[in-house]
Amino acid sequence: MNAVAATLRQSWVITLRDLKHWQREPWTPVFGIAFSVMLVLVFGYLLGGAIALPGGGDYLAYLMPGIFALSMMFGIEATMSAIANDSKKGVTDRFRSLPISGAAVPLGRAGADLVNSAAELAVLMVGGLLIGWSASGSVAATVLGVVLLLWLRFAMLVLGVFLGLTFRGEGGVTAVQVLVWPLGFLSNVLVAPESMPGWLAVLAQWNPISATAAACRELFGNPTGITGGVLADHALLLAALWPAVLTLVFLPLTARAYRRLSR
């Protein structure tokens, strides 16, 4: 068997194992979805009435793609805590003592997390349709939007594996759980950056998650709330590039962290 096929086979075994965890203890993924649904309710109905979009448009239609992107980003917590948990329990050490590829465990994790995120996205989209959101773009554009969302999730996965391997203590996971909030909200996900003070607006525009959310709004035919700035012309490009940059930077670091793991 050649090395690539063997690695894929080993990754698949790990993916099945990770998926079985959710089958046995479904609360983690169910809670993840419930959380996104809650955000839709809070921002769509509770606060949405008070939020005016620059350039006009329905706020709920603006919000949904933002929530999609946000839930992809928040997935980093699940990845990180699963990885940290494994290495704390010693399972990672056993994996490392087996004659398997070093890439198999992270790749397997990636497979499982992408399945989970795709399911979460499907639930959110169907839920969105039920409350009046719709994607009015072409089928191809809609599919591209979904691909860009999962692409962001993939970058978050790599980052999550890296963080999970590097900061294994309880503190590490908690820190990320807290940090994702300001990082997630400092974007165009919930409100248009135009309503923010100048320097914040710049930061929010350059947030990777903003690029994905803006690109999806364009592709789904939803209001973008954009009146200028980089995302006005380059949302798609940035939505493709940002995750690529993150992956390129953190994939080697992750491989290194995995090799260097030792207790």
Binding site: M1, A6, Q10, V13, I14, R17, K20, H21, R24, E25, K89, G90, V91, D93, R94, F95, S97, L98, P99, I100, A104
Partner: peptide, 27 residues
């Protein structure tokens, strides 16, 4: 084969599933 100082098992999987998983990883 290494049996480390701390049990290195998947707690959520069944006993049999653990062995099958490691067996499959061994090829």
């Amino acid at each position: 084969g290494l049996v480390g100082q701390h049990a290195a098992l998947d707690e959520i999987l069944f006993g049999r599933e653990n062995l099958v998983m490691f067996g499959r990883l061994y090829g």
